[in-house]
């Protein structure tokens, strides 16, 4: 594919708006926030606002990667925040099994493998539960995942007995606050997950299958796509991403907080996916979702450096999301290109 074709390709067109929004925010900071693009190297590690934005956005990026695939199949996973809380709670409990009973001693030091694999196993299980409800029983995705969203936080609180389990576990903390090749480890994890997912979906037929299911699940079944299996695995993958994100947050703050870990992050992830240009049931772009997450996070950081109360960022987020959604709405675009005369009967 030569250069011109690439510029005209559908994928690039889809990415144009989100990328312009991100560049716009960064340009604003270039002029109005001194030292925003300054990156210094200390002890072989990169420091600066840009690295900080990427690092802070890492958990949501992971959620967004999983959510993108779920979105493409025409579903949504509301339970990711609760799964994050469950995964963190389990990790902390593995490290300090008797903390909730009031025993402050650690007992024997758990191996990193156990601390990581047990929470991830249960995250996969949570994803499997969602997937079974959606793909096998056939419940609408919003509602199927709503169940785990409500009950999941309760389960996480049950595991920690409503307490905040604090811990010290050097190898595990590395997941949240370590550095590799000069970059914070969460960013490396995101890059790894992104690369693997990209290769799996775009260098094999899997991505097309997922899009086919989202566009028309019945037709895709008649085409011979194993629609149930793929839908199931997409939810399992989303659960895995959420579990990983939960581990990062838990390792970063060195505590499991069942009440607040991952609270509202499902909304950020959904917003990122929509801003990134993934359709609800149809074409998806994982790179777009990453850009979407970066837009949200850099917007938040920008507002914070302006000295506005952090809670008010919600208002800005709301306006950005609705604006992007409107731009993607065909009817809204037609309103401005002045072709309202040709009235369309809504499809489906």
């Amino acid at each position: 594919m030569n250069q011109v074709q690439w510029l005209r390709s559908e994928n690039f067109q889809r990415m144009l708006w989100p990328l312009m929004a991100l560049v716009g925010i960064l340009l604003f900071n270039l002029f109005f926030t001194p030292g925003f693009f300054h990156i210094e190297i200390k002890d072989g590690r990169f420091f600066g606002s840009l690295v900080d934005i990427a690092n802070r956005a890492a958990p949501v990026m992971l959620l967004a990667i999983g959510m993108t695939l779920v979105f493409a199949t025409g579903g949504v996973d509301l339970s990711v925040g609760a799964v994050m809380a469950i995964s963190g709670a389990i990790a902390a409990t593995v490290i300090r099994p008797d903390y909730v009973k009031g025993v402050l001693e650690y007992g024997e030091v758990q191996s990193l493998f156990l601390v990581l694999s047990i929470p991830l196993f249960f995250s996969l299980l949570a994803g499997l539960w969602n997937g079974l409800l959606v793909a096998v029983i056939g419940i609408q995705p919003i509602i199927a995942t709503l169940i785990l969203m409500v009950a999941g936080r309760g389960i996480a609180q049950l595991i920690t007995q409503g307490q905040i389990v604090v811990f010290i576990h050097e190898p595990f903390q590395y997941i949240g606050s370590g550095f590799l090749f000069g970059l914070p480890f969460p960013i490396i994890l995101v890059l790894l997950t992104f690369t693997v997912t990209y290769l799996l979906t775009r260098r094999t037929g899997l991505g097309l299958f997922i899009e086919a299911i989202g566009a028309n699940s019945v037709a895709s079944r008649f085409m011979g796509i194993r629609e149930r299996l793929i839908t199931l695995s997409v939810y399992i993958f989303s659960g895995f991403c959420a579990g990983l994100a939960g581990l990062i947050v838990c390792a970063d703050i060195k505590a499991a907080d069942a009440n607040n870990a991952g609270l509202f992050l499902e909304l950020d992830a959904i917003a990122a996916v929509i801003i990134g240009g993934t359709m609800w049931g149809g074409r998806f772009t994982i790179f777009g979702s990453i850009v979407g997450t970066l837009i949200i996070q850099s917007l938040t950081t920008t507002i914070l450096t302006r000295g506005v109360a952090p809670e008010v960022t919600l208002v800005f987020k709301a306006f950005v999301i609705i604006l992007v959604a409107l731009i993607q709405s065909e009817k809204f675009r037609r309103l401005f290109s002045g072709r309202m005369a040709r009235k369309k009967v809504p499809a489906s």
Partner: peptide, 21 residues
Amino acid sequence: FELPPFLVTLVGMFLARGLAF
């Protein structure tokens, strides 16, 4: 604009909470 209800009301959720703050 034929936007999905859950998206619009999700934005409404952000907006109302932000306005409350």
